[in-house]
Amino acid sequence: MGMLSAFANPHRFLALSNWLAPLFYGVGAAMIAWGLWQGLWVVPKDDYQGGDIMRVMFIHVPAAWLAMASYSGMAAASFIWFIWRHELADIAAKAIAPLGAVWTALCLATGSIWGKPTWGTWWQWDDARMMSVLFLFFLFLGYMALRAAMDSRQKAARAGAILAMVGALNVPLIKFSVDMFTSLHQDASVITVDGPKMAAVYLWPLMMSGLGHMLLFGGLVMTLMRAEIWTRRAARQRARLLAGA
C-alpha cells in the first residue's frame, strides 16, 4: 500500500524512484548478464528445437513478454488516469509507450532472425505470435502518433487514454482472429518455446533474463517519468514567469 500511494504523489514518486530506478537498472543488468552467460555458454543446445539457434530464446522470449506486459501496463495506467485523473498515471502511460515499442520491435526483429534458419524465411505470415506482436507494434505507434498530434497535454492524455483502452478491448479479438487465420495452414513443426516441453535447464536462465528485462524496463519507465515530471514543472514555471512579467 505504501508503494502505491507513493506512486500517486509526484513528490514521493521522485524520492522513491531516485533510488529505486538505479537499483532496478543494476539488478536487472546483473540478471540479464547471468541469463546470457547461462544461455550462451552453459546450457546445452537442444537438438529438438533446431540446435543452437534456440539460444536466441533468452532475448526473444523476454522481449515478447515485455511487449505484451507493457501494452497491458499502458492500458491499465490509461484506465486509472481516465477514472481517477491521477497525473502520474498519465505520465506512466506516456513513458511506457516508446519503451514498449522498442521491446516490441526487438521481439519482432529477433523472431525474424530466429525464423530464417528455422523456417527458411525472415517473415512467416502463418505464425500467429509474430502477427499479433506486429499489430501490437502498430498499436504503440498509433498511440504515440496520436499523443504527438494533440495540441495540449490534457488533450494528449485524454485522447491517448481513450485509444489505449479501445486498443486493449480489441487485443483479445485481434489475437483470436490471427490465431484463427494462421490455423488455416498450420505447420506441424512449430517451435514450442513456452510449453510443458521446455526442459528445466532452460527455464532458469529464461526466467532470470525475463525478470532482468522487466526490472530494466521498470527502471527506464521511472527515469522517463522523472524526465516528464521535470519537463512539466519547467513548463509551469515558465508559465508563471510569463504571467508575472
Binding site: L40, D52, A63, L106, T110, I113, W114, K116
Partner: peptide, 16 residues
C-alpha cells in the same frame, strides 16, 4: 561454440 547458426545468434544479441 555456436556451430552453423552463430551468425544469427550474434545478430540477435548484437541487435538487443
Amino acid at each position: 561454440d555456436l556451430d552453423k547458426n552463430a551468425a544469427y545468434i550474434w545478430a540477435c544479441y548484437g541487435l538487443g
